[in-house]
Design a binder for these strands. Structure first.
Lengths: 211, 211
DNA sequence: TGTACATCAGTGAACGCGCGTTCACTGATGTAC
DNA sequence: TGTACATCAGTGAACGCGCGTTCACTGATGTAC
């Protein structure tokens, strides 16, 4: 005996329940729920190497095998997750710059603050973006191009401040320094960190030579 | 029937072999082999979360239960591994500074190069040093003080260059920037990285204001 | 309008594997008498 | 000097667990006739 529930599960009389299938053509709904579940789990651990297919299925509330309906393996799911996260980070940076007005230094500083804020507010997700070594080789190429446009946007502001010639070098400094800042701040919580805004601004000034 | 081998195993007639116990008082020998095996495995994966007790035992060539003779759990083993690695990293930095002579800028630059070289030559081990979140709370306190003396040594050189007052801030920049540099270089291999020595030296100059 | 069938979306049992941990054990080496 | 015994260093079988993956299945929804 099966009884239809109002929302999206079917009770089977004993304790177990069964998800009622999506309408025809709405199969993608579960796909989205899978990605969201993976994001929730990764936000806690920050470690892609320990994410399991069964744990994701459990978090969604679905049979483990149902994951295969939407992803061939867990690396495909991770690629999707990373792509979404990179876009989120890039968007954060972008919005920060747009809110800052036309001055290149103000824009650069705003981007730095945006980047750092994202990483510190969501340390688990931030770590996921940069944990490529776990990906199997077949997804490596695609993953490695993530973040290029964001780098290029920063480079343009940097170029306005230090010149086109050294802009690649200085933008690289920026990227490595902000990345290290986020990773170490969220990892070495007992270290006597300087006040965050002071640290980001002083770092930015020094890197572009505005002391 | 058991036959004594010349080195350190005993053959049991069939394919299996048995390690001949260490002499009385030499029980610490296996402890060292366990740490070395863990280091070999971690050098490949760089991920403490996926290191298993059984894999370590297999690498040593010993029964899984033998690990318990020397470590209460895997976190204790990891703490030992991390402590040894931090000391290695600090020693590398130290030696680089000593080889550089008395000038503070030269010493600072040498330390930076030493730090970065260590990280790039042994990316897996470098990652292990900074992967604290995996440690269970009971070992967290101890782990977090690792590296303090190394920071202090760098700070003294920085103080000679930028003054005592801002030395903590600038040394923090140094640490985060070099950490990010190592992590991203070993992780994002497809990025068009600048020439290594140029990058480190330019970064150092900018951080201490010697452009 | 009715009905047989195809398709879509998801399930659940079963497999073999590696894992951490327990337990009683083995066998060589040293020591007390 | 001989011998019984304690101790040290390490083993191996067994447990229950979570994992990825396979396979045949279920049952609602749409479609052809």
């Amino acid at each position: 005996m099966t009884v239809r529930r109002t929302i999206s599960t079917v009770s089977t009389g004993d304790g177990s329940s069964r998800r009622s299938p999506a309408r025809r053509g709405e199969g993608e709904r579960l796909r989205g729920e899978i990605v969201d579940a993976a994001l929730r789990l990764l936000a806690e651990t920050g470690n892609t190497a320990t994410l399991s297919l069964r744990a994701v299925a459990r978090e969604v509330g679905v049979a483990a095998t149902s994951i295969y309906l939407h992803f061939p393996d867990i690396d495909a799911l991770l690629l999707e997750v990373k792509t979404q996260l990179s876009e989120r980070l890039a968007r954060t940076e972008c919005m920060a710059a747009d809110a800052a007005g036309p001055d290149p230094f103000d824009r650069l500083l705003a981007m730095a603050h945006g980047y750092v804020r994202f990483g510190i507010e969501e340390p688990g997700l931030y770590h996921v973006i940069f944990s490529s070594p776990t990906l199997s080789p077949k997804y490596l190429q695609m993953g490695s191009y993530i973040g290029r446009e964001a780098f290029e946007r920063v480079r343009q502001e940097v170029a306005a401040l230090v010149g086109e010639q050294t802009s690649h070098l200085v933008t690289t400094h920026f990227w490595t320094a902000l990345h290290g800042l986020v990773v170490l701040r969220t990892t070495r919580t007992r270290f006597p960190w300087p006040e965050l805004d002071t640290e980001v601004e002083d770092l930015t000034r020094r890197l572009v030579g505005r002391t």
